[in-house]
């Protein structure tokens, strides 16, 4: 079953390798760009869902306070709030769940395509779906980052970990760490900016403290974790991590998002959340209104 995802990736990677003058690093980068580009609608949907959830946080908090002793009523009110704002509480998870097998598939495709042992190569024989790729096997696994400086920077074996390669390859885990951190930081900033953009300066409507804490700890934990894994994973996978992170940085940057949103014809919606009328409340007309923006406190 898993092979349905993996084998096309392996085949496309081998095909790109053939098309790009047998440059496996370039093939990895191009395949990563293609996959990240094609999965952008899912990422955008996930971000949109996250933004909407943040916008209704203040109201959700009010509901929690109001119905803290009546779980049933709270649940009903929450559902109503979600319905009125067209928010699916697990809507952000679905695109994420779809993206994960794709990203893992890509990650594993690099591992399988760079077969370096008899066992890995015999496995590869059943994965190449595009005819004519057999004569390329084994893919070139030695890579010289700067051919002009080959004397000082000897070739890296992409199938081995940085610890088994020339010392300068230890820069790769560091690069993984830095780019993962930068991507996480940018993700956090983007979410924060979006939230601030659509809300006023009411204290309640700022990103919640706990949430910010989790995001901040992820910004610390994830880079360390990925950097640490890169020490023991093959250099080829570290290159994938770096490429993927750099593409992520472009995707999360305002310019990148703007271009991608145009490409995928995504509308920018900055509507304020719809407020709902609750029982026992003074009836309020349901409107999609834009609230006044208070001047920022200095």
């Amino acid at each position: 079953m898993w092979d349905l995802i993996l084998n096309p990736f392996v085949s496309i990677l081998a095909w790109l390798y053939a098309a790009l003058n047998q440059d496996i690093v370039l093939a990895i980068v191009v395949l990563t760009v293609i996959i990240r580009f094609l999965t952008y609608p899912l990422l955008a949907k996930q971000q949109e869902s996250s933004r909407k959830m943040q916008q209704i946080q203040p109201q959700l908090k009010k509901l929690q306070e109001k119905y803290k002793n009546d779980k049933e009523k709270m649940s009903q009110a929450q559902m109503k709030l979600y319905r009125e704002n067209k928010v699916n509480p697990v809507g952000g998870c679905f695109p994420m769940v779809i993206q994960f097998p794709i990203l893992i598939g890509l990650y594993q495709a690099i591992f399988f395509a760079l077969a370096a042992t008899p066992f890995q190569l015999v496995d590869l024989s059943e994965r190449l779906l595009i005819p004519g790729l057999d004569s390329l096997i084994p893919l070139q696994r030695m890579w010289t980052p700067i051919p002009q400086l080959a004397e000082f920077l000897p070739a890296l074996d992409l199938t081995l970990a940085p610890t088994e390669n020339p010392h300068y390859s230890l820069l790769l885990p560091l690069l993984v760490l830095i780019t993962t951190w930068a991507q996480q930081k940018l993700t956090m900033m983007t979410t924060k900016q979006k939230s601030e953009k659509s809300d006023d300066d009411d204290e309640d409507e700022k990103p919640r403290g706990g949430q910010t804490q989790i995001m901040q700890s992820m910004t610390t934990i994830m880079p360390i974790m990925f950097g640490f894994f890169s020490l023991s994973f093959s250099v080829g996978l570290s290159i994938y991590f770096v490429a993927s992170n750099l593409i992520g940085i472009v995707q999360y940057s305002p310019q990148g998002r703007s271009v991608l949103d145009k490409l995928f014809r995504k509308k920018q919606t900055d509507d304020a959340p719809v407020e709902i009328v609750l029982e026992d409340d003074e009836p309020v007309k349901k409107t999609r209104k834009r609230r006044k923006k208070k001047p920022r406190k200095k």
Binding site: S50, M53, Q54, Q57, L60, K61, Q64, P89, G92, C93, M96, V97, F100, L103, I104, Y107, Q108, F111, R208, G209, G210, Q211, I214, M215, M218, I221, M222, M225, F226, F229, S232, F233, L237
Partner: peptide
Amino acid sequence: MLDLERRRMSLYLILSLAALLVSG
């Protein structure tokens, strides 16, 4: 901090870890 958002963050973290472990 709402439970749902916390859960989503945790899910993301768990999935990332699982992905790395599975791949590794």
